[in-house]
């Protein structure tokens, strides 16, 4: 089963709920945040495509080895022109497995030449794929921050979400990164892990879980890292399919809505992020990208980028946004109101 974005949006509509469900814009209005506006562009998040070596059950991108969408060199060059014309400090490269894009290393090199901080959202197992030989050393040589997915410090939960054998590969990849200096105390080679729940529940408190991860990964596998980011599963694509298939959808959505936190809403990542799709279309975030909700206005392609136009834009929102505002909040760098 795979939903087109329009079908997902129809399911997510509050009017489709069996009982009254608050609209996201209503929650924003009640918090004095409507319309939600950007406060600048601190992060240029480039999604270079949907090709991945894994097929994770919760993936909001619906990524996998079967996907063919991949950013062209021309579009990647437009992204770099955005950097040349602005002082956006951080480039956040995601996918799919972003490293599988043929332009990945060029984007990293060019971004670093321009003096930007670069983040690679890495699934870890990609570091062991034969065609990616030398990837970990390349990342280290360019001082790329690695933000790596590891949903739990136990094999069962990790493999249930990301596929059989992924946990063992992840541990091997983390050891490789540690051997290069990543994650070591005081090291400039930043290694941060991402937890997301292996099911239809919200993430635990970030700090307490980080302490668990540090203790257990060190004790069981001798692995060190810097920070843990807890991220809420978004009701989009494969996770939405899972919620519907397992009969958890209505309850999960009610949970997200009831847990709306105005402080988390004020700090959502889309206010400081601009997201570029594999074809160059601009979005407020990676989730809007997967729902085909581009930035508002007539200019929505990276070749039309104009910093003043996007710095205070009105953000396109929907019911799925409750995923970023529930509890302590959720973003690509973990909680926002914790």
């Amino acid at each position: 089963m795979s939903f087109a974005p329009a079908g997902q949006l129809r399911i997510l509509e509050p009017a489709a709920a069996p009982h009254p469900r608050k609209a996201f814009d209503t929650a924003l209005s009640e918090s004095g945040l409507f319309p939600l506006r950007a406060t600048g562009v601190q992060v240029l998040q480039i999604n270079v495509g949907k090709v991945c070596n894994q097929t994770c059950k919760h993936c909001h991108v619906d990524a996998g080895p079967h996907r063919r969408e991949s950013m062209s060199r021309e579009t990647a060059e437009w992204c770099m022109r955005v950097l040349e014309r602005t002082t956006i400090p951080t480039v956040d490269i995601t996918g799919g497995a972003p490293e599988l894009n043929p332009n990945f290393r060029w984007i990293v090199e060019r971004s670093r030449e321009l003096g930007r901080h670069v983040i690679d959202r890495c699934n870890l197992s990609i570091l062991l794929v034969p065609s990616q030989a030398g990837l970990a050393r390349f990342l280290a040589a360019h001082r790329v921050e690695v933000v790596a997915s590891l949903p739990y410090f136990q094999e069962a939960q990790t493999d249930a979400q990301r596929g059989e054998g992924v946990f063992a590969k992840s541990i091997e990849a983390l050891r490789l990164l540690n051997s290069l200096g990543y994650g070591q105390p005081g090291s400039p080679l930043k290694l941060n892990l991402v937890y997301n729940p292996a099911g239809a529940f919200l993430p635990p408190p970030q700090k307490a879980l980080e302490a668990d991860f540090k203790r257990e990964l060190a004790r069981r596998h001798g692995i060190v890292f810097h920070s843990l980011y807890t991220i809420t599963n978004m009701p989009i694509s494969r996770f939405l399919e899972y919620l519907l298939r397992s009969g958890n959808y209505e309850r999960y959505m009610d949970r997200l809505v009831q847990a709306f936190n105005p402080m988390a809403a004020a700090a959502v990542m889309c206010r400081t992020t601009l997201s570029v799709g594999w074809d160059g279309t601009l979005y407020d975030c990676d989730f809007n990208q997967m729902l085909d909700l581009p930035v508002r206005g007539e200019f929505s392609h990276v070749r039309e980028f104009e910093s003043t136009r996007f710095a205070s834009r009105v953000i396109a929102t929907g019911v799925h946004c409750f995923g970023c505002t529930a509890g302590s909040g959720s973003s690509c760098t973990g909680t926002t109101a914790g």
């Binding site: 136990q154 729940p197 529940f201 408190p205 668990d212």
Partner: peptide
């Protein structure tokens, strides 16, 4: 069960 998972306990 939900509260335990959301406060960081695991099934073990």
């Amino acid at each position: 069960t939900t509260a335990s998972l959301e406060s960081g306990s695991n099934p073990d």
